[in-house]
Amino acid sequence: MRNSLIAASALSLVVLATPAFAQDAEPAAPFTITGTAALTTDYRFRGISQTNEKLAVQAGATIAHESGFYASFWGSSIDDYVYLDADAEVDLILGYSKTVDGFTLDGGVLYYLYASAAPGIRSDFFEPYASVKYTYGPVTGKLGAAYAPKQNALSLDGYASREDNLYVYGELSTTIPGTPIGISGHLGYSHGRSALTLGQKDYFDWNITGSYTYKNVTFGVSYVDTDFKKSSPYLFFPGLDTAPGYAKNGYDLVDPTILGSVTFAF
């Protein structure tokens, strides 16, 4: 969801031309706007399905300033069990990114908004994040962390027994030289309960993704898995796993899966 600044100008040099025909290059615009729209067979957030293993529609946009500051929004369709009656997640982001000696440092605050959640459900919460990225040859490595302080949304009833949550992760990605094929891997660790992890406080998630990019369209296939135990309850309201419109089985939300996606960049 976070995008780098893109250089936007070029200068044509005319050898031995007279000053009357010389033109200066236009300065790069101070702001850059980018966006994406995607369709995926399942929306997995840190290994947990947010759509009951069904199709998700997603879109986002970023406006970045040449100073390194940026603002983004990103949204996805979700299923009701994430937060009762909520059918969409919207992420609002304010951040800052800067490259120093080849290392890209990125940090900010992300706010999770579930505007259509049922009245009385405390669903929205915020999460500061930070990461560092470095590219060596064709390989890029990234380490990051996100911490959500104790908030009403990270609890069973939305009021009492508030929890915090720490998520740390590492990623490796590469593009096969001379081809539009990319490969990436992700390993994450979550400590602390959230709305969908009431039965198990700590867990790992991981995924491996292959991608193919044609012009501004990227096709992806991912294998996603977690180390959740089958005996753990996962849903916000225990017992709703048998109700119409909710996950038919809590373990289905975290079991191994292969998902496909197509993303349009603009």
Rank of each mutant, 00 (worst) to 15 (best):
G170Q: 08
I183T: 12
G220K: 07
T175W: 00
N216P: 11
L172Y: 12
T213C: 00
S184K: 08
L172K: 14
V217I: 15
D202S: 11
I181V: 15
N207V: 14
W206F: 06
Y167N: 08
I183Q: 07
T179H: 07
S194M: 15
G220S: 11
G199K: 00
I176G: 03
D225Q: 14
S194C: 15
S173I: 09
G199P: 08
F204A: 14
G178W: 00
G182K: 08
T213G: 05
T197R: 09
G220H: 01
R193A: 13
V217T: 15
S194I: 15
V221N: 11
F219L: 10
I208R: 03
T174N: 13
I176L: 09
F219W: 12
I183F: 14
A195R: 07
N207L: 00
T213S: 02
K201W: 14
G185D: 02
T209G: 09
Y167M: 05
T213D: 05
D205E: 11
W206Y: 07
G170Y: 02
I181W: 02
N216K: 14
T197I: 07
D205F: 12
L196N: 01
K201F: 12
Y214N: 11
Y169N: 10
L198I: 02
H191N: 06
D227N: 15
D227T: 14
T218F: 03
V221W: 08
G182N: 09
S184D: 09
L196F: 04
G192M: 13
L187W: 07
G188R: 03
A195F: 12
Y214C: 02
Y169T: 10
W206C: 05
K201N: 13
I176P: 05
I181T: 06
S194D: 09
Y167P: 06
F219K: 09
V217R: 10
L172V: 15
Y212S: 07
G199V: 03
Y167I: 05
T197F: 03
Y167E: 07
N216L: 02
D225R: 12
G210K: 13
N207A: 07
V217E: 08
F204R: 10
Y189A: 01
L166R: 07
Y167R: 04
